[in-house]
């Protein structure tokens, strides 16, 4: 499904602020996998998602989805394959448009035409989808999204991101900026939709517990590299404590590596 080959990305190259955000990422995610990604701030998690989505282009490397080379394709083109939910609930919806209009925007990923974006058939479809969220949004189709809470907006974004059955779903700490109650609810909705549609999913999270509880594979990143990739039986036996220990151990090794290079 998704192949990343030797991805490099450097920000502000040649200046004193130079940051090597990704340093040789190789990743293969087969169809139907649910991968969780953890790592500290600045590990390159968000950059990796941005590279996959096409928001930023890599300096080096190759990205393919189902054997199609997407390395130099623009973000809007990749949207044919990718659904995305952002960390910031404000990013995923158009605030001055109504709920039904937002949903109508998500129904097609290309080939938009000059016929009306809304009709009764579509409204019925939206109502049926919104009922499943159990947030009462089905009664507020003509309400502006700006009036919704962060949790409601995020739930709507998930619905929009998966409306057309994407090949790949990207979740970038999509519950991090919500209160615990909404966070739980949004996570529940996410898992239900992913299961129902059997979506290949990448979820970035800060929460180690979440990273191990959801999905079937966990990747740990640190300073632009993948330092741990576990799945199957091994993952089942792993505890948060183990992850933390592994993290500090691997980090130490890398420091030594760097010191050797610098010496």
């Amino acid at each position: 499904m998704l192949h990343l080959k030797n991805i490099y990305k450097c920000f502000a190259k040649g200046t004193s602020y130079e940051i090597e955000a990704l340093r040789g990422i190789n990743l293969h995610i087969p169809e139907g996998n649910f991968v969780t990604i953890i790592g500290s701030n600045g590990a390159g998690k968000s950059t990796l998602l941005n590279i996959i989505a096409g928001t930023i282009l890599p300096d080096k490397g190759e990205i393919t989805i189902n054997q199609q080379d997407l390395t130099n394709k623009a973000e809007y083109y990749r949207a044919r394959f990718i659904g995305r939910v952002f960390q910031n609930p404000l990013l995923g919806t158009a605030p001055s448009m109504t709920i039904e209009e937002n949903l109508a925007l998500s129904i097609k990923r290309f080939g938009r035409g000059l016929h009306l974006g809304l009709n009764n058939e579509r409204r019925e479809l939206f109502r049926n989808k919104l009922v499943q969220l159990e947030l009462g949004l089905e009664h507020m189709l003509t309400k502006k999204v700006a009036l919704l809470s962060g949790g409601q907006r995020q739930a709507l974004t998930i619905l929009m991101a998966t409306m057309f059955d994407p090949k790949l779903l990207l979740l970038d700490e999509h519950t991090a900026s919500l209160d615990p109650e909404s966070s739980k609810k949004i996570q529940l909705i996410t898992q239900e939709i992913v299961k129902e549609k059997k979506l290949t999913t990448i979820m970035v999270t800060h929460n180690m517990q979440e990273a191990l509880r959801y999905g079937n594979r966990t990747i740990m990143m640190d300073r632009g590299r993948i330092i741990l990739d576990i799945s199957g039986k091994k993952r089942e036996s792993v505890t948060i404590d183990y992850l933390l220990k592994q993290f500090s151990k691997l980090r130490k090794e890398e420091y030594i590596e760097d010191e050797l290079v610098l010496a």
Binding site: T55, A79, L91, A94, E101, R109, G113, G117, A161
Partner: peptide
């Protein structure tokens, strides 16, 4: 229309409408 809505969304949330294709 679908195109017109995309124009409106461009002014409202450009990042979002790009991620919708």
């Amino acid at each position: 229309t679908e195109v017109g809505m995309a124009v409106r969304a461009t002014g409202d949330n450009e990042q979002m409408i790009r991620s919708l294709g």
